[in-house]
Design a protein around this nucleic acid. Structure first.
Lengths: 103, 103
DNA sequence: GCAATATTTCCATATTATTGGAAATATGGA
DNA sequence: TCCATATTTCCAATAATATGGAAATATTGC
């Protein structure tokens, strides 16, 4: 993973509303949710939510699929796995006895 | 973990230089490094690095210990573990068969 | 075609973060 | 005490981001 890619993903998550949206989609994986349901659950205005969903999608943390007049957003679990691996890469110079992270 | 705490940690990591500093400290866990060495390795001016280290420390991702005229910074591995767990909490509503993340 | 609903784009405002030179502070050694 | 080194604080310029109302776009059912 590129440093730049990781920064984009972390920046996408580093915002209260977006983090809440992402975690809601993680809990509701793998089916996903529509913006209407997300906005209702988290009490977010549609334009604000749309902006945040786009940011998460550009960072590769969620995917969007058009379903008729709805759009289904899903957490991209491999994306978050890759980010987690990147954060703890080569931890303790590879000496796993010294490290708590699983990576 | 509080939503606010997680946002602070993610924001701390969502910056190119800080992410590089953090990952360098992860690789050099558990001994840690001094700002002088970090700045040399990553080619960062001292005031800029000091600002970034303080941000990481406030987010609970690194710790600082004074050692004579040096300061030793270390990656706070339990902190990153907690953040990772928070991101994937209750993934797929707890149905681990559907989920890739280890959490 | 028309009305209702879902979602996004436009846009102006407000807020917050990043940068690094210069100066301040702190420690250790001679 | 005085000097060299390590680190931080001060500060001002610059840049990036979040917010939500109004309007635009898209889809479905009638």
């Amino acid at each position: 993973m590129e440093n730049t890619t990781a920064v984009a993903a972390l920046a996408a998550l580093a915002q209260e509303s977006r983090l809440a949206v992402f975690r809601l989609l993680v809990r509701n994986a793998p089916e996903g949710l529509t913006p209407g349901l997300i906005g209702e659950e988290l009490d977010l205005p549609a334009p604000t939510l749309s902006f945040h969903l786009r940011t998460l999608a550009q960072a590769g943390l969620v995917t969007a699929v058009q379903e008729g007049r709805y759009v289904r957003y899903r957490a991209e679990l491999p994306g978050i796995d890759a980010l987690i691996a990147f954060l703890t890469e080569d931890c303790c110079a590879g000496n796993s006895k010294l490290c708590s992270p699983k990576g």
